[in-house]
Amino acid sequence: MKNLIEKKDAALIFGYNEYSLEIAKNISFKYKNIEVFSLEKNENSSHFDLSDDWSELEEKFDMENSVAFCVLQDDATNIFLTLSLRASFKNLNIIAFCKNKEGAHKLTLAGANKVIPLIQTTASMISDMLRKPIVTKVMHGILYEKSDLKIAQIRVEKEASFIGKHPFEVNWGEEFGIIVLSIMQDDINSSFIYSSKAKHKAIQNGDILIVVGYDNDIIEFESLIGSQCEVNWGDWSR
């Protein structure tokens, strides 16, 4: 009977605190199922313990396509939780938060896909604001605000004029109204087209381009050469 119930993908937030509430608020646009777990029993969250028994979760959710946020206050417990989750679910997307770089390193070792060291992230945001206010403003616009400017990844599938050319030989801005930042070839190793090693690569069919541009232009470019694609971005960044 159980098998007949369709498992849902969900966002699982471990830790009941201000951070977790903030996360829940911000990801609700994408996940219908958001569940907050707490080590202590309380009314607003489900209870969990560190006993490695995740069968309840497994029954309820499609763990392969879910994402877990580990935001426990104590770094040690957070690492323990990450390890436990990774041991049980190989493909679960785990995003963990910790205080500083030291914790971040340990969390990566524990198997988190993405680790956010809070102090460093806040500090680098502040220093970016001071050092490059305009760049930060533009980036902030792309990332966090409702700007028309987007970053997307597009796979080259159709015949296009630039296949066989080096990314630098094409005037992307004038021809397509977009700017190509990076090119990923089969081996997933991506590099920005401006780093020196990229200049030897010619664009081939099947490459994935990371482009920045206005929404409309990206859609147009997409229809011209291929399709927007999803890549496991957790792997991409490493």
């Binding site: 903030e22 911000n26 646009f29 995003i95 945001m125 990332l143 966090y144």
Partner: peptide, 11 residues
């Protein structure tokens, strides 16, 4: 910041 980061990761 944490909220925004989470949103971006997902979105």
């Amino acid at each position: 910041l944490v909220g925004m980061i989470a949103k971006e990761f997902i979105g």
